[in-house]
């Protein structure tokens, strides 16, 4: 075999390999279609489908808040600190927002449906602005809602057979287009928090 022949074979092998790689990645072959490129809009993918039951016993899903600005907050009633504080603060903010607050739907989604029954939530929520809706669901429904808002929760057993919950702490803002519009930080000045809510409801 002459050196030239070896070179020719090697060249064709190289071409074949290159072509194979190109075909494999180009999506020409069936079943190798290009993975759909994520189109960056600068808006986080938060706010998917969820279906839960309100503290008044009504089915409440993502369709109920379609076209409306809303707030989502995850918590549980066996929480002595951050959860009631957030609910009291939201109550205060709703009253400070005035009539524009009617356009806003704050949702308090329990991550502890085992202990937070609908009856308990119905009684619990009487302490807060009646436009705040407490929501609970089955374990699967709860998981779906947590996932829809890219949130997190975890059941943590504690000594004595009881348990507590770790959970996403912030209040998620969703605009009327159903897009994520930031979070509320209750450590910020009250005026800043109120300004965010006013912008959200277009007041």
């Amino acid at each position: 075999m002459s050196e030239l022949k070896i070179f020719r074979i090697a060249a064709w092998v190289a071409v074949a390999i290159a072509a194979g790689i190109w075909i494999g990645f180009s999506g020409i072959l069936p079943g190798t279609g290009r993975v759909q490129q994520a189109v960056s809009t600068g808006i986080a993918a938060i706010g998917g489908r969820f279906e839960l039951t309100s503290h008044r016993g009504e089915t409440f899903n993502n369709a109920k808040v379609a076209g409306k600005p809303y707030l989502v907050f995850f918590g549980f009633t066996h929480c002595p600190d951050i959860c009631p504080t957030t609910l009291f603060e939201l109550t205060d903010l709703m009253s400070k927002l005035g009539p524009a607050a009617d356009r806003l739907t704050p949702l308090f989604i329990t991550v502890d449906p085992e202990r937070d029954t609908q009856e308990l939530l119905a009684s619990y929520m009487t302490s807060f602005d009646d436009r705040i809706i407490a929501l609970r669901g089955s374990q699967a429904q709860t998981d779906a809602a947590v996932k829809a808002f890219a949130a997190y929760y975890r059941k943590v057993p504690i000594e004595g057979g009881s348990y507590t919950m770790d959970h996403t702490a912030g209040v998620i803002l969703m605009n009327a287009e159903g897009q994520f519009a930031g979070t509320l930080d209750m450590h910020e000045a009250r005026e800043t928090v109120l300004a965010k809510l006013k912008r959200l409801v277009g007041a």
């Binding site: 009633t77 066996h78 929480c79 002595p80 600190d81 009631p84 504080t85 609910l87 009291f88 202990r115 308990l120 009684s123 619990y124 929520m125 009487t126 302490s127 807060f128």
Partner: peptide, 13 residues
């Protein structure tokens, strides 16, 4: 301590 909602099973201090 904070006022508690009715049915609250815990209170913070």
């Amino acid at each position: 301590s904070r006022p508690t909602p009715p049915s609250a099973k815990v209170a913070g201090g």
